[in-house]
Amino acid sequence: MVVNCYSPPLFSVAPMMDWTDNHYRTLARLISKHAWLYTEMLAAETIVYQEGNLDRFLAYSPEQHPIVLQIGGSNLENLAKATKLANTYCYDEINFNCGCPSPRVAGRGCFGARLMLDPKFVAEAISVIAANTNVPVSVKCRIGVDDHDSYNELCDFIYKVSSLSPAKHFIIHSRKALLNGLSPAENRTIPPLKYEYFYGLLRDFPDLTFTINGGITSIDEINAALKAGAHGVMIGRAAYNNPWPILGHVDTAIYGLPSSGLTRRQVLEKYQVYGDSVLLQYGLGPTVRHIVKPLLGFFRSEPGNGLWKRKADAAIQTCTSVKSFLEETLVAIPDSVLDSTFAQPPSGRGDLFANIDSFLPPPYRIREEDAV
């Protein structure tokens, strides 16, 4: 197993389909040097069947390290082939998706969250992936699926997967998945958060590593989760929709490192160079709309944001370069905002996990039929 030289994954940005693409990850890395970044989930079949076009799906700039490739699938042969093909791209970890509730994935694809119902297969899949790579393999899952949502059932899943495979790191989305009747968006908000399940896992599996995901939206809450014992914290849409105050404080408030001192204007200048180089390189590939999409939350809650968004909506229709897009829109933002560095992190619900011990589930006991 390769031991990397990066900061530990105390903080990571969740894999989000159609969101955590190369463009977003480039912006995220400009803001934070130490956040762990995840790709969108890639189906093993996509990698295998696009073998002649892999750069489109797997290529990234060296600056994006540390970066994790998330793979989904239920065909062991394709998982093995996809892993071998991905090795060329030198990801720092491979993550196996057992949490996506999308009907395309958990329904017709028969993988994602549905795989939580078959932990022995998950262990086999992890073993196949691990046998074809020299980087760590982790698992991202929910706390349950449909009516299989008890704490003991979650523990059975963790126990079997960790006992039968090399997986020792689990990223736990602290909601269950409902595979019938809810959309993927509703599955992110409607099933209740049960953080007590996550902290019960910390107690009952002290030899494993657990990252918490779901409902955490501020730097204060990240630090509160770490203080309560979480080995890492993963944030999704909050880090996408409001990147400056979240990612901007990761290096200092989470990792205790000096600030880069970059201003919003400097980040945008660097991102513009990246964006226009991509447009020149790929021609009919990504459009200005695709490249500036990660910027649309860049000034959230700041003076001028409303006018900026209106100008951005119009500029996306006509601009042929990122430079021209920024020239047309940044007039809406005061210089004081553009030239500001990271301020004090906004205060969040820092007491979110203060009384976690009071509602932990009863300790897990391995059932005789689950012993391996």
Rank of each mutant, 00 (worst) to 15 (best):
V2Y: 14
Y6N: 01
K33L: 10
A35S: 13
W36R: 00
E40R: 02
A43M: 09
A44H: 07
E45P: 00
E45F: 10
E45R: 12
L54A: 10
D55F: 13
R56H: 15
A59N: 11
A59S: 14
S61G: 08
P62A: 12
H65T: 01
I67L: 15
L76V: 14
A80I: 09
K84Y: 09
A86D: 02
Y91L: 06
C98E: 02
G99Q: 05
R108L: 13
C110T: 01
G112W: 06
A113D: 04
L115F: 09
M116W: 14
L117Q: 11
V139R: 03
V139E: 05
D147L: 13
N152K: 05
I158P: 08
V161F: 10
S162G: 11
A167F: 13
F170Y: 11
I172G: 01
S183K: 05
P184H: 06
I190H: 12
F198M: 07
Y199E: 07
Y199W: 14
G200I: 10
I212E: 02
G214A: 11
I216M: 08
I219W: 04
E221I: 00
I222R: 02
N223S: 00
A225I: 03
A228I: 08
A230W: 03
G232M: 05
Y240L: 14
N242V: 09
W244M: 08
V250C: 05
A253P: 00
L257K: 07
L262C: 03
Q266I: 08
V273G: 00
G283M: 09
R289S: 13
G297S: 09
F298C: 03
S301G: 07
G304A: 12
K309N: 04
A314I: 10
A315F: 12
A315D: 03
S324R: 04
V331N: 13
A343L: 12
D351E: 14
F353T: 01
D357Q: 14
F359Y: 14
R365I: 15
